[in-house]
Design a binder for these strands. Structure first.
Lengths: 198, 198
DNA sequence: TTTTATTGATTGACCATTCAATAAAAAACG
DNA sequence: CGTTTTTTATTGAATGGTCAATCAATAAAA
């Protein structure tokens, strides 16, 4: 079946298969054999396109973080007015877009978060992403709060978002997106209400 | 060296060694050989006292969740007055208790959280613990808020606490306990301020 | 005919568990 | 109190199993 230009197709297939596998059996039991079977290809293909299992895992994490950032950016881009409230609401909503994408993305994200503590390459990805989100939030809060308040509010909002997601990933009943978004919005409102001077 | 009554000593040693190992090399690379070496015993001892590696991991998670609950309970027990605010502050502070915030405990907790998604025995532990904390928080908020408000506030506070932990576990600079506790307290105050009727 | 894509059996490394052997304390005994 | 027996604790080499990576062979397009 060798047609030309299979690389992007195979890469996409394998990344998708990796997420599905992690969702179904967990990262610990996700072997190259499982991924390959799920993608309908042989094990050798993984080393061929990603250099090895680690390369595939890193590419998968990159994809997830990339999609997440994209979903926030899209919502920020279509804002009618450039208000702090609007941007912060976009960040909250964009971050819970993930769950629309599915359970498999949530579980994969959490699995990577846990393992990134001991894998430098994943840790760097994670850290860069975190700082970008934090900066983004902090910058918007700065429009209404002083430096220290803004930093605190940003830490709080980032933690609330991750916490809601974390609990949603594990809860047997799944995540309640509506409630999560509402809690995020409420937190934004309460922080913005702490304005020092009008 | 066989003295009598080694069991509790060995169990403690091995649980501690497990946490240290997970902190240092990650759960994925934590083999029985690594744990045994770290505890200064042979690999056979693990199967002897815990039935196998899984038994040891479950016991370790039990210990962490138990310690966490204990630290909250202690702070609630020494409250002078039985106020919702006091209990909620105790919950926040207990969750950021020094013993809970050591790097090894944080990393171990997060590693277990991620893997519990696919291990029924760990999942049950995790879920029981979560529900207890949620009930505890919800009950206190109910003293000032209506049912729906209390549920939301409880979800938010639980998520905020877990999120702060999660980010603290991963951040290269570690967790800022003072800030975390302050953010928790502030969230409690803001929720209590939403009282419907005096 | 050449190039590109893919296969999958083989290889080498690693790991949890087992269990026969060992050693030290405790108990029993004279 | 000294010696033997029993009990308890521990060891670590051997076992069977799993896994990622490799690469020579294969097959379809160009």
């Amino acid at each position: 079946m060798p047609k030309l230009g299979m690389e992007p197709i195979r890469r996409q297939q394998l990344i998708q298969a990796t997420m599905t596998a992690i969702d179904e059996v967990g990262l610990a039991d996700t072997t190259v054999a499982v991924i390959a079977r799920k993608a309908g290809v042989s094990t050798g293909i993984i080393s061929h396109y990603f250099g090895g299992k680690d390369g595939l895992l890193e590419a998968t994490m990159r994809r997830i973080l990339g999609d997440l950032g994209e979903s926030v950016r899209q919502r920020q881009a279509i804002l009618e007015q450039d208000t702090a409230r609007g941007h912060l609401r976009a960040i909250v909503e964009g971050n819970f877009d993930r769950s629309q994408v599915s359970q498999s993305v949530m579980k994969t994200w959490l699995a990577f978060w846990a393992t990134s503590m001991h894998k430098p390459s994943l840790q760097r990805l994670q850290h860069v992403n975190d700082r970008r989100l934090h900066s983004n939030i902090c910058y918007q809060f700065r429009r209404h709060l002083d430096h220290e308040q803004a930093r605190s509010a940003a830490s709080g909002l980032a933690a609330l978002i991750d916490g809601l997601w974390l609990r949603g990933a594990l809860a047997p009943e799944g995540i309640n997106i509506t409630r999560a978004v509402t809690l995020g919005h409420e937190y934004v409102e309460e922080q913005l209400a702490n304005t020092t001077a009008p």
